[in-house]
Nucleic acid binder design. Structure first.
Lengths: 357, 357
DNA sequence: CTGAAAGCGCTAACAA
DNA sequence: TTGTTAGCGCTTTCAG
């Protein structure tokens, strides 16, 4: 008599197909050592019973959980959404579950690192976009599974990230090539250490300026807490830049949302973009296309995919190199918000002859 | 001798604490039938060994997996991001894992419903924002676990959703009260059936007009595929509305992003908002605050929380009512993009005396 | 190619 | 209050 309420087990399938449980197991796992005839019988029985393997039971014996844990600081961002959208199907295709840990604030963060709920319950951990302390990294080290750092780099640990420095350098050079010499940089500071690439981008900006022999001016670098999501903070930042004795002719915003906000503010102030001020973003989020924003593009979907592939590789091949750093490129997408700077009053008649670099 | 490589087991902890494995189990689960003295010893031993319980093993015997599965059509949306951001910590607090299934396209969708990977591997399933076929719903019915429909309603199944109809009605009334009589409705059609609330909102719009005795004009309702994310489609839609013999004095966009795009387009065309045309959104996404958009607000974080609570309840109490519908309210947030319609040419001198309703 | 038997790590009776 | 025993559903030797 078939089991009353619960899910059917392999024993049920075996009985129905007239074989042993082992054979069912072999069949369902696709092992080649099963005769076609038997295979057919088993598969039909399984289908008829609507059978599904219990991962709990199999992982108990194989020692592998079949899950990849993913730690993210937030989900309310284009970046995370895109990365996970490519990661999830990839893991599914490999028949892996994706367990999500969202750490929106400090107390959640502390709790996570204290209990490490992923321990023993995942085959690998993907840590996204955190600015981790050494202590936290160390804690993850003895988690007993591969830990992959995504959108950040950690010395000696597998990491996947975009080359933010090079991207920001490329963006800054774009503005320099257009003739800009007063280029501002607008940075965001988010919550719970979600700031890794911020530093990197600022660094790239500085490098490009130095390479061009332009002295760094700290007045041109504005960092404000929660800048991106707070209109007032952005307004203040822009006001501050415009009131400088020598205001910038271009603004490089750390990310597109911020850039879009800046453009909105400037237009409200009747300051034409790009005629009076150029604005450059970073990311190539959908909003960039909206406002026809020039930007430095990154592909978070690629990051998700690459990170997922790396995770699968490290799981299946424990002997693999556990310290690869995979660096993804950025591309410059010039659109309509960057242009040569306005010609200074004194040089109006020599228009077209930009000061040489 | 302690095990060399693998995780320590309860047996290891038991040995170290000088007790039986059962006692370790009882202690770690917080059962009251353990003497304080023994409890202390066990806890210390567990800590020293850095022990973590294997959920696989315990679920094998308890029959509960300790995971809640979540099915989402996409992650690239404010709605999903917000809902999951509140759901995830709630589940963590209940010591539940959150397994994520992302179904971005039809082939993934087919595969999911064919294999039902969640079967036997979760204690409950939360299905977000899908426009499910009856067949799909039926398939979920014999999944052997509570299935909760979120941001949609399914007859006779537990559902949690926002009252889109009432919200859209309220929004439309707001425009009617301002004096508008020609009110357009802009709808989006997304991918993979992610359109549930779209119908509802349109319905609410129609109801409000009918109640006000205003005849429905199909020309005023524009639905375009992928409207929200495609600038051109939005541009076309707006153009179409403006070129009507009697163009609308107000536009109710199905969601804020779309509303923001419309505003951008209108301003580019030198059409003042709200002086010439009012624009109303739906959602109260961050972008609404950006552009100071009047909108109908919903709280996806509430939905995530409520849905999670319902899931936990249905898991822990199988006897509970399995057909509750929890309906969340919306609120109207009038900001600066809605105002009375411009006074028609012929009535300019009787300004202030709006046509009575 | 297939079956029998053992056991993964834990919890749930049942005894003591 | 604690220990002993059995067994959850599967995979994996090892025989055959």
């Amino acid at each position: 008599m078939p089991p009353a309420q619960r899910h059917p087990t392999m024993a049920d399938v075996a009985e129905r197909a007239g074989v042993s449980p082992s054979t069912v197991s072999r069949t369902l796992r696709g092992l080649p050592t099963v005769s076609p005839e038997v295979r057919a019988r088993v598969e039909q029985a399984a289908r008829e019973l609507n059978f599904a393997v219990s991962r709990q039971a199999s992982s108990l014996v194989t020692g592998r959980t079949g899950v990849v844990a993913v730690l993210v600081p937030t989900l309310n961002s284009w970046f995370m959404g895109s990365a996970l959208s490519s990661l999830a199907p990839l893991l599914r295709a490999a028949d892996m579950q994706l367990t999500l840990y969202v750490i929106p604030d400090m107390s959640e963060r502390t709790a996570f690192f204290e209990h490490l709920p992923a321990r023993r319950n995942a085959d690998a951990l993907l840590v996204f976009s955190f600015d981790l302390t050494d202590e936290e990294t160390a804690r993850l080290d003895d988690l007993g599974m591969p830990v992959i750092y995504v959108s950040q780099h950690v010395e000696g640990r597998p990491s996947v990230y975009v080359d933010d420095v090079a991207g920001a350098r490329m963006g800054t050079r774009h503005l320099l090539n257009l003739g800009h010499r007063r280029i501002a940089f607008l940075a965001t500071v988010g919550a719970s250490g979600f700031t890794f690439s911020s530093h990197e981008r600022l660094l790239g900006y500085r490098q490009a300026l130095s390479e061009a022999g332009i002295p760094l001016d700290d007045e041109l670098v504005v960092t404000a807490r929660a800048l991106a999501r707070d209109k007032r903070a952005t307004l203040e930042a822009v006001g501050k830049l415009l009131s400088l004795r020598e205001p910038p002719t271009a603004v490089f915003a750390e990310q597109d949302e911020l850039a879009a906000a800046v453009i909105g503010i400037l237009r409200t102030m009747q300051i034409d973009v790009p005629q009076r001020i150029s604005v450059l973003g970073f990311d190539d989020q959908p909003v960039a296309e909206w406002v026809d924003l020039s930007t430095v593009a990154q592909l978070p979907t690629d990051m998700g995919r690459v990170a997922g592939e790396l995770a699968l590789k490290l799981i299946s091949d424990p002997g693999a190199d556990h310290t690869p750093h995979i660096i993804l490129p950025t591309t410059l997408i010039p659109r309509s918000t960057t242009a040569p700077p306005p010609v200074p009053d004194g040089e109006r008649d020599s228009r077209g002859d930009l000061p040489g670099g």
